[in-house]
Amino acid sequence: MITVRGIAKHFGGLTVLRDVNFSVAAGEIVGLIGPNGAGKSTLFNILCGIIRANSGEITFEGRRIEHLQPHRICESGLTKTSQIVRVFAGMSVVENALVGALLHARSVAQARAEGLAALKRVGLSGSEERQASDLALVDRMRLELARALCTRPRLLLVDELMAGLNAAEVSAMLELLQSLRDEGITLIVIEHNMAALMRLCDRVLALDTGSIIAQGTPEGVSRDPRVIESYLGEKFARALNS
């Protein structure tokens, strides 16, 4: 589905990504973990075209995309939800979703219908006509997910969608993400909630100081000494694997 080779990114003298290599197969749910500042969100932004890498190649469904504009990448079926929630605050909830659906819909009416369906999907039915800025943070995150779904992605990057959710909400979100995969959407998920991640993901990539330091099954990665040292910590890893 997607293959990333030799991605490097510097901001001035600061190296954020050194040499990132990985690939994700269609239908996988892959977790991306690592300490703050490891470069996870930067990597997502590069994949979506919001930031350009200094070097490296990204091949999405057989096509090189590292030089494409974000809207072209989105058109080709790759988009993300943001860690810092980005809804269109001046629009109603349904209008937010509708904007994403305009990418493929033939009319505003059709886009609205698709938007309503996506809102139902993420559990925002009943809030359609509310102002997006009036929603609670959790609902704004859901709204962003709905908008992303409306662009009909085949690969969706999810940046910390479970931060601030309670246990029941995490379960619902996990179920939703799994159902997206069942529909054929491949997912890469940045998440600090390790327990949730281990339930959700087929595979985990661990990023630290700009490179992938470990990858494999959630259990394997959570036992990896480098991951424990840089991210999880001894005690937490033991608790997680017990």
Partner: peptide, 23 residues
Amino acid sequence: SPLGYRLRAIRDDEVAAKLAGIN
């Protein structure tokens, strides 16, 4: 029109507009 919605999206958040596939 679709153009109007796209313009409003740009007004609110240009990066989010790009992520929603808007040129």
